[in-house]
Design a binder for these strands. Structure first.
Length: 589
RNA sequence: GCUGAUGUGGCUCAAUGGCAGAGCAUCUCACUCGUAAUGAGAAGGUUGUCAGUUCGAUUCUGACCAUCAGCUCCA
């Protein structure tokens, strides 16, 4: 929805417009339900909201009434006037609004306390606003949802009701926006995953435990082979480790202290207790520790497409984008301090090379740092953190990677470079990550013998390129709408005999294409060609091979691309060559 | 986890305090057809689960389960 901004004069006006809308929303609610207490109401990326504390739940009908009242307020052309008050008078003015009182009390001593007044309604607000409610196009306002939100984002505090809205200067812009939202739902990987037979879930297996069906697993394997091959060429060595570890392993790593909330509870077996692993670092650390190492052997790159289990809160699960079981494209690079820069650079190169292959262009790099105040979440060693954070920042800067910094987003053991993307529906998530770790190697007493014969502690880079294969697939599904590039498509070619007479010839074609290494199916049903095409089209199969009497006679195949383009008749060999080129070049469509 | 909404054949959706219905998909038969839906017939359901109210519950009530939206969380 990034192009919303084009419907407004500029970004700042858009924000101002929506912020005024949120005031109009609050005013409308106050007129209809005076007992409602107001919290905050900002503009957001796509519209605006207002958080409120009401003794009832807002229903869809109530939202419609509120919308109607908002339209009235726009027609009233109320002037918005700003004024300031000293703290005592501000508190007096807002004495019936407990959330506003808390906000005022939390303002710094010297803060200017400002209000905006429109008609009978006054709100604590820093502004800015448009000058009159008449500037807002009443019939282009839509209240889109009402959901729960915690006061001040704190799950221990009051649960408020958040009413979301969107508005535009013109009605047709609103309609267009709402239509785009509807279209986005069609890209939802959960819907496409079911329609295309990629994956399923089952209550008896458990929520957050998706299962990949033959077509989905075909794609999964292509991704796995693709990334492992890249890694092998870069000197990675792949391993296989178990999905469980002892509690002791995670106590040593620090996960038990910092990550226990996200782990399934321990299983007591004989005299040991095991946990399902939430990540693979400890296992890979133990593999490193299995043998003594010399500086000459570093860097050592240990990779694994590894199964992990995390006890994610039930409300956060989302198809294969966020599940309780998933497979990480994980690797741990054991390096000397001198090798940090070149290895981070190689990881970044790999990330962007892979993105090029998958035509991923819309992403955002984040340097994720710790929150120094949060001693519970992060390994407590400020010196280590300062060193790791500045090292990673420096490397990224030297590499010329554009990034923003975010506090409190680091792993418990170190800072990260996260590469984030946005799905069709929902919030941004991390695809790739590269993390710098001075912490775990020491906890596991990992060493290598340096040039002087003394023991040194290696530095570890944790990295995931495809992130988790599951999430990566979710991203691919939404980006391509299920129309995967031919090199990824679970079924690349569907052979469609025009009549039963061509059935045998269709089998011959199928065998030839299969032998050439392509994924092919034949539709033998005695249906009309149009019917078969319609179905293959719905399955978003890249190439349809039509074979009828003419083709049998000429020993040709007639090719239709899913774009609707008729590529005409050609020899089987010509088609094999065409397909091979498309696959080899990872052609987008 | 929190707040709310939703749950009817594989899918999309009807209906009702009194025998649960349609389209698509499936199966059978006929048609042998050249680039997005051939026709006819058949089969398919403990209406998410378990309780309660009722002569009778898929419908009303409650609990649970799952899904969806948002919040919190997310190495």
């Amino acid at each position: 929805m990034a192009d919303n901004q084009f419907t407004f004069e500029n970004e700042q006006y858009r924000r101002t417009y929506w912020h005024t809308c949120s005031h109009i929303l609050a005013q409308a609610v106050k007129r209809l339900h005076p007992e409602v207490k107001l919290a905050i109401g900002p503009s957001i990326e796509n519209g605006f909201y207002y958080d409120m504390d009401a003794p009832f739940n807002f229903t869809a009908e109530m939202l419609e009434e509120i919308e109607g009242e908002m339209r009235k307020i726009c027609k009233e052309k109320l002037k918005l006037e700003r004024f300031e008050l000293p703290r005592e008078e501000a508190l007096e003015l807002m004495k019936d609004e407990p959330y506003k009182v808390e906000l005022i009390n939390d303002l710094p001593e010297d803060a200017v306390i400002s209000f905006y007044k429109q008609g009978e309604f006054t709100d604590l607000c820093a502004g800015p606003h448009v000058d009159s409610t008449g500037r807002i196009k009443g019939n282009a306002i839509k209240l889109t949802a009402c959901n729960a939100a915690y006061w001040r984002g704190d799950s221990n505090r009051e649960t408020l009701q958040r009413i979301y809205g969107i508005a535009f200067p013109k009605k047709d812009q609103l309609d267009e926006y709402l239509q785009k939202l509807e279209e986005a739902k069609l890209r939802d990987h959960r819907k496409l995953g079911r329609d295309l037979g990629l994956f399923m879930t089952c209550d008896l297996v458990g929520k957050g435990m998706p299962m990949f069906l033959p077509k989905g697993y075909t794609l999964w394997q292509i991704l796995e082979d693709y990334i492992k091959d890249k890694e092998r060429k870069l000197g990675y060595q792949h391993v296989l480790t178990p999905c469980v570890g002892t509690v002791g392993l995670y106590k040593t790593s620090g996960h038990w202290d910092h990550y226990k909330e996200n782990m399934f509870p321990a299983m007591e077996v004989e005299d040991e207790s095991f946990v399902l692993r939430p990540m693979n670092c400890p296992h890979h650390m133990m593999i490193y520790a299995n043998r003594p190492h010399s500086y000459r052997q570093l860097p050592i790159r240990i990779g694994e497409v590894a199964h992990d289990f995390r006890f994610e809160a039930s409300g956060t699960l989302k198809g294969i984008e966020r599940a309780r079981h998933f497979c990480q494209n994980d690797a741990h690079l054991f390096v000397t301090p001198e090798q940090i820069k070149s290895e981070v650079a190689a990881v970044c190169d790999l990330i962007f090379e892979v993105y090029k292959d998958f035509h991923i262009t819309d992403y955002r790099c984040v340097l994720s740092l710790r929150d120094p105040a949060d001693k519970k979440k992060y390994h407590d060693d400020d010196e280590m953190w300062d060193k790791a954070e500045s090292a990673l920042r420096e490397v990224l800067t030297d590499l010329g990677i554009e990034f923003t910094e975010e506090i409190g987003e680091a792993a418990f053991y170190g800072p990260k470079l996260d590469v984030n993307v946005k799905p069709a529906v929902g919030a941004e998530y991390t695809l790739s990550t590269c993390q710098l770790d001075f912490c775990l190697p020491a906890k596991f007493d990992l060493t290598y013998t340096d040039t002087d014969g003394g023991d040194k502690t290696p530095v570890v880079l944790h990295r995931a390129i495809l992130g988790s294969l599951d999430r990566f697939m979710a991203y691919l599904i939404e980006e391509t709408m299920g129309a995967f590039p031919a090199w990824l498509a679970p079924v690349q070619v569907k052979v469609l005999p025009v009549t039963d007479r061509a059935s045998e010839y269709a089998d011959q074609v199928e065998q030839k294409l299969s032998a050439a290494g392509f994924r092919v199916e034949v539709d033998h049903r005695s249906e009309k060609l149009g019917y078969k095409i319609r179905e293959a089209q719905g399955q978003k199969i890249p190439y349809m091979v039509v074979v009828g009497d003419k083709d049998m006679e000429n020993q040709t195949v007639s090719i239709r691309h899913r774009s609707g383009k008729d590529l005409g008749a050609m020899s089987q060999d010509e088609f094999v060559a065409l397909l091979q080129e498309v696959v080899d070049n990872k052609v987008k469509d």
